[in-house]
């Protein structure tokens, strides 16, 4: 990991139930182990029921605010394409956007009251930042556990954001359910290799 002054901000976005909270726990534990001050903020409650969810992680020498403002995220990890589009204004100039190409249709789209942005990735690129597109949900399903999507994305983050000086595997073992450790370690390894695929 490159040394830095100040605070780095990682924003995780997805849809309620996608497991954003688990990888934010792993990330926070990793950063703490590495000696950083860490704050993580998530809002749960009503939004759990299929709504948009965000988790914010900030780490560095000393962190005050637990939240990330517009244009302040060094990295955004999106578990779903439309959510990547929604979170885009939070990306810092020159920041990294990692997104799954997975699509989950919001109720207004299902009922025909809104249109799904199938071209979200192109629109993001046209705004001036090239997203790192990871087929995390597809990969996890192919590995035999759709829930491992989050760990594929964690792997992609570790590569894209140079976090490989932290030993993530023991943390994955600690935080995922015991019977899913094998698949999740596999998912992590595949995710780490994913940057080259885009």
């Amino acid at each position: 990991m490159k040394e830095f002054k100040g605070v780095h901000s990682i924003l995780l976005v997805g849809v309620g139930g996608q497991g954003t909270i688990l990888i934010s726990k792993i990330l926070s534990a990793g950063f703490m182990q590495r000696g950083y001050d860490v704050k993580m903020s998530e809002i749960h409650g009503m939004s759990q029921r299929g709504g948009s969810v965000t988790t914010q992680i900030r780490y560095g020498d000393k962190v005050y605010s637990p939240t990330i403002g517009l244009g302040e995220a060094n990295v955004i990890i999106a578990f779903e394409k439309a959510e990547a589009l929604r979170a885009l204004p939070y990306l810092k100039r020159g920041g990294i956007l990692i997104t799954d190409d997975h699509e989950i249709y919001p109720m207004p789209v299902l009922t025909g009251d809104a249109v799904y942005p199938y071209d979200a990735l192109e629109k993001i690129e046209a705004s001036g930042t090239k997203p790192i597109v990871v087929k995390a949900a597809g990969t996890a399903e192919a590995l035999g556990n759709a829930r491992a999507q989050n760990i594929v994305l964690l792997g992609a983050l570790v590569t894209a954001w140079n976090l490989d000086d932290i030993d993530w595997e023991p943390l994955i073992r600690q935080y995922v359910p015991a019977k899913a450790v094998g698949i999740n370690l596999e998912a992590f390894a595949v995710g780490k290799g994913m940057r080259s695929m885009v």
Partner: peptide
């Protein structure tokens, strides 16, 4: 606020649902 990136399409609303 710092200007982040702005796409010319808005994401559809995603309210919580049953």
């Amino acid at each position: 606020a710092d200007e982040g990136y702005i796409a010319d399409t808005a994401a559809p609303p995603r309210p919580p649902v049953m």
